[in-house]
Design a protein around this nucleic acid. Structure first.
Lengths: 354, 354
DNA sequence: ATTATTTGCACCATCGATTGTGCAAAAAAG
DNA sequence: CTTTTTTGCACAATCGATGGTGCAAATAAT
């Protein structure tokens, strides 16, 4: 058994054991010992002791001293859907490849919670912050700015820090167009009042998507009325209610549905669970998010896959610039046809079998 | 504009501003000032200044001093599936309700990565660690033990720390039984060689599930052969290959499929994308994981929903005991019939509309 | 042998917050 | 007006790691 009695070894313990000063030990263990002209043999001695005693640096102490922590944060609205969980997954991989420690936290799309969470992260001297889908990116910016923390917006743009978002307008056009195309050889052509958009709220992404939807819809179907836009917020429950209300009123669902996110799509699932399959036997759904299971549902589901990999790569690139321009970088999303199982971040994880 | 010039205010700044000593400031701001007999008026003075100058404690310094950080960690295998992302979601909620700060990290089911990650967390003086699905919980235990960190296993049990896992044996029995029942009024009854299990590896969960599967299968169908168990690891790619191989050999898929996790289920999706729908028109799938979209696929999908809420609640309960018994606590999972959209952790998030 | 360099390391202040201890001034008791 | 008690707070050590500075001893140059 190793001396793993109670407390963790510190440089002071190793200092005593080695007969060297604590600063020497520190230099050896953090790799700056050549700069400090420490003899190779002393370095080896100390490294040996460190290993024996399972020394690991106290990162809080180190962080306190250099006011950097080695932590890189990702602030998410929520964990529990494939868009954000896959973002978390690629984020972790990328941060690790930079030799830092990823930290992922969610703030429930609650401005208060966002600020509180970011304050906490700042208090831990986080080095960089990726702000994904903040409701109020500019306030978050304020905190980071005041603390001198490099940060960048993902998914929802801010006006005060560089932002990397997916091209929601283009994506929505693609998606809407694909929905409409699906009806090309249908018995009866799709009428403008049969194509609805559900979900989202008054955020940048939703606005752009709605714009894209309306533009292309008007272009292809000749008309679009306000009634066809149903922003229900980002909750499955609210979305379900919206569908129920619609169904109550019209006795059926629209044949063409643009659904603003997979979270809203879950609202449709809840509706479906309450109604016989015939209710939506002939609908076509476009969902602005990709979920592999969603892609195989028993009606055509066209999805948009946002390119989190590129978004994060771009974000890393920007965050490393000394003085990145405060502009919005658009990343093109990808249209995913029904019944498609794309590879994801999990595929780069090596799997060991039993 | 507030004095948010550059650096964050410290107790020393407030000390100067208020004319009090730093220790007084500290006491006031961390709430121990009554114990320390600080006059109410001084407290108010300092609190006022703190607010004005947007003081927030440097948590690294505090953590260094008390060798606690206020951080509670959750170690996941991966983020990117609904089981773990919903675990992360409920974890965060529960940790916050305890007034602490949640930290979620994944380690890719890689023993090395797991240990390295935990070491890092320990170096930040994390207070408690929830270890979910570690490949090697007992080594992780070693690290925590040495550092005096309270920890608990979730999902995959260890032998040295208390564990909260779902009752995989029972769950598998339920699921297998439900699959078989589905064929009760089929044209031809299900034969033993038509019911397969795919996915998983040699971990505790898989073993239990396989046991449950085989037991009930033997019970109800009279026989089960080793050939019907196909552990493919936890990767979609490998699982897909297994299905392709099977299909190559047999010209069809088994009519009854027990799939060990949603990750493996994704392997089936990939297979499906390559083949016409008729290939699996009449299959029944049981998946040991719940995914709302998976539940609505165009063939019957019976799912098991593991009760992460209860698991975490139990885990919190245990981790707060001074000397919890090293035993395994089983949490009953829930059978989810096809076309069911359950509520999840996102439903407890309040949504504000535009 | 003397001076000039280089080598190898120790010393100490510092990061920001916490806490045990001690000591004046104010209030109460006598 | 003393003596005792209480009130209110300051001091200083501490947590662990870092890095600037300084100073001997070893080595090289003259």
């Amino acid at each position: 058994m190793k001396p793993q009695g109670k407390k963790k070894a510190t440089i002071y313990d190793l200092s005593v054991l080695s007969g060297c000063s604590a600063s020497t030990v520190s230099a050896v263990l953090n790799g700056t010992w050549r700069k400090r002209r420490i003899k190779e043999s002393t370095a080896e001695l100390i490294q040996g002791l460190a290993e024996q005693h399972q020394y690991t640096a106290n990162l809080q102490a180190r962080g306190l001293r250099n006011s950097r922590s080695g932590l890189v944060g990702l602030l998410l609205p929520v964990h529990d859907n494939r868009y954000f969980s896959s973002m978390a997954q690629t984020f972790e991989a990328q941060v690790r490849s930079h030799g830092k420690c990823p930290v992922v936290v969610s703030a429930s799309r609650d401005p208060q919670e966002e600020l509180a969470t970011v304050e906490t992260l700042i208090s831990y001297s986080i080095d960089e912050l990726f702000i994904a889908g903040a409701t109020d990116p500019d306030s978050v910016h304020g905190l980071c700015e005041a603390a001198g923390i490099r940060h960048i917006n993902i998914d929802l743009p801010g006006t005060k820090a560089p932002s990397v978002i997916s091209d929601n307008y283009q994506g929505a056009r693609l998606l809407t167009q694909a929905i409409i195309k699906r009806f090309d050889d249908a018995a009866s052509p799709l009428k403008p009042e049969e194509l609805f958009l559900f979900g989202g709220r008054n955020d940048h992404a939703s606005r752009e998507r709605i714009k894209g939807f309306r533009d292309i819809k008007t272009e292809l179907l000749g008309h679009d009325s306000d009634a066809c836009i149903q922003p229900t917020g980002y909750s499955p429950g609210m979305t379900q209610k919206a569908f129920e209300a619609f169904y109550e009123r019209e006795g059926k669902l629209p044949r063409g549905l643009f659904i603003n996110s997979s979270i809203n799509f879950e609202g449709l699932l809840r509706f479906m669970a309450q109604h016989p399959h015939e209710t939506f036997a002939d609908i076509v759904v476009g969902c602005y998010d990709y979920d592999p299971f969603g892609s195989f549902l028993p009606f055509p589901v066209i999805m948009i896959r946002q390119d989190t990999e590129s978004m994060l790569a771009k974000a890393f690139e920007l965050i490393e610039e000394t003085r990145p321009a405060v502009k919005i970088h658009l990343i093109q999303p990808e249209l995913v046809h029904p019944r498609t199982a794309l590879k994801g971040p999990l595929d780069s994880i090596r799997d060991i079998d039993a």
